[in-house]
């Protein structure tokens, strides 16, 4: 199946674009998709600390933070949109 991944802020430079379509296997999870994306040591280092996401990395599935779903184990469906961005502040 294919999902769309959108990148924000510094992750656009890291992943070389604003968005891309990603092919993942049936039954794939958010963690699986991110593992496919992180195909270099630098990319993996920026997103992951061990098996989990780094503290400043926020991942949303169709607008919902995956932390409020099932985290990296959240299953994907065809046409899903995954957004990857660094923690940001403002006000």
């Amino acid at each position: 199946m294919t999902i769309e991944v959108r990148f924000f802020a510094a992750f656009r430079d890291l992943f070389g674009g604003r968005s891309r379509d990603l092919a993942v296997g049936e039954g794939a999870t958010v963690g699986d998709a991110l593992a496919v994306l992180c195909d270099t040591a630098a990319r993996r280092r920026e997103l992951f600390a061990g098996a989990g996401l780094r503290a400043h990395v926020v991942v949303m599935l169709n607008g919902a933070p995956v932390g409020a779903l099932r985290g990296l184990a959240t299953p994907l469906a065809p046409g899903d949109t995954l957004a990857v961005f660094p923690l940001l502040g403002g006000g």
Binding site: F8, A55, G90
Partner: peptide, 25 residues
């Protein structure tokens, strides 16, 4: 140490939030 205070706020300022706040409706 913290990425937001170490670098991200300096790079994008508070307006770095615009796209993200749009993303979460």
């Amino acid at each position: 140490q913290a990425p937001v205070t170490k670098r991200l706020m300096r790079d994008l300022g508070t307006a770095g939030l615009v796209e993200l706040i749009n993303l979460i409706a």
